[in-house]
Simulated assay, not measured.
Amino acid sequence: MPLQQSDAPPHATRAASLETRDLTIRFGGHVAVNAVSCAFHPGTLTAIVGPNGAGKTTYFNLISGQLKVSEGQVLLNGRDLSALPASARTHAGLGRAFQLTSLFPNLTVMENVRLALQSRQRVGLDMWNVWSHHRALIERSVELLESVALAGKSNVQAAALPHGDQRKLEVALLMALDPEVYMFDEPTAGMSVDEVPVILDLIRALKQRRDKTILLVEHKMDVVRELADRIIVLHNGTLMADGEPETVIASPVVQQAYLGLAPLEDAA
Rank of each mutant, 00 (worst) to 15 (best):
L137R: 06
L145W: 03
P197D: 07
A172R: 02
L18T: 04
I249S: 02
H134T: 14
P9L: 14
A176C: 06
A172K: 06
R114S: 10
R114C: 13
H163E: 11
M1K: 13
S102I: 05
R96G: 00
T247P: 05
V69I: 09
L81E: 00
H163L: 14
D126C: 12
D229S: 07
W131H: 12
L227Q: 06
H219M: 03
F27K: 05
D194V: 15
V254Q: 02
C38R: 06
Q118E: 13
N112R: 00
E170T: 07
L103Y: 05
A205K: 13
T46Y: 04
P105G: 07
G190M: 06
L202R: 15
N34P: 10
Y258I: 01
A268E: 14
P187Q: 09
T213Q: 01
R79E: 15
K207I: 10
L174M: 08
E246N: 13
G237Y: 00
L202K: 11
H91C: 12
L125M: 14
D222N: 14
Q166P: 06
L150H: 06
Q256C: 08
W128I: 14
R79V: 11
F27L: 06
K212M: 10
E226C: 09
A116S: 04
A241C: 07
L227R: 02
L75Y: 01
V142A: 15
H163K: 06
G260H: 07
M240D: 07
L137T: 08
E111T: 07
P252C: 10
A151L: 14
T24Y: 08
A268L: 11
K207F: 07
Q118L: 11
L202C: 13
R122C: 05
R14K: 15
I48R: 04
K168L: 06
L23I: 01
L103R: 01
P245Q: 03
Y59K: 07
E139Y: 06
R135C: 09
P2S: 08
E170L: 03
E139M: 12
S64N: 13
L84D: 02
I232R: 01
M127P: 12
E226F: 10
L107N: 11
I231S: 01
R167T: 05
T13A: 14
L200G: 05
Y182S: 04
L259F: 02
H163G: 08
R120E: 03
A262N: 12
E195L: 07
E218Q: 03
P197F: 10
A228H: 00
N236P: 04
